[in-house]
């Protein structure tokens, strides 16, 4: 899956995170900002890479500003940003690449 244009999903409200994606330079380039990076940084990175792998995204610059989001929210915001970049809002693969 190729990132076609820059896109963003999520907010900076508590329990949420804001995810921005844009075309990468041949790899996954993750920038993570979180107040709980020491406790949960590795978990957030793990969820991020797993989600991108499921979506088939291998070339992306992804920025995550975390405000204490649960794993399910991180996944939702990454998928939201990726599908926005593709401008796809219907016929989504629920239970497939999205799970």
């Amino acid at each position: 899956m190729e990132i076609k244009k820059p896109a963003m999903a999520g907010t900076l409200e508590s329990s949420d995170c804001q995810v921005t994606v844009e075309a990468g330079e041949g790899k996954i380039d993750l920038e993570l900002n979180s107040a709980v990076i020491n406790q949960f940084g590795n978990q957030i990175r793990k969820v991020t890479f797993e989600t991108l792998e499921r979506l088939g995204v291998k070339d992306v610059k992804i920025t995550i500003v975390d405000k204490g989001a649960l794993d399910c929210t991180i996944k939702a915001r990454i998928e939201g940003a990726v599908y926005r970049s593709l401008e796809q809002i219907e016929h989504l693969p629920w239970g497939g690449a999205i799970r």
Binding site: A9, G10, L70, D71, A76, R77, G80, I98
Partner: peptide, 16 residues
């Protein structure tokens, strides 16, 4: 935000 809400809903239903 209609599109983003669906992703949030889907994962909440699945995981919470």
């Amino acid at each position: 935000q209609k599109d983003a809400a669906r992703f949030s809903l889907y994962h909440a239903l699945q995981e919470i």
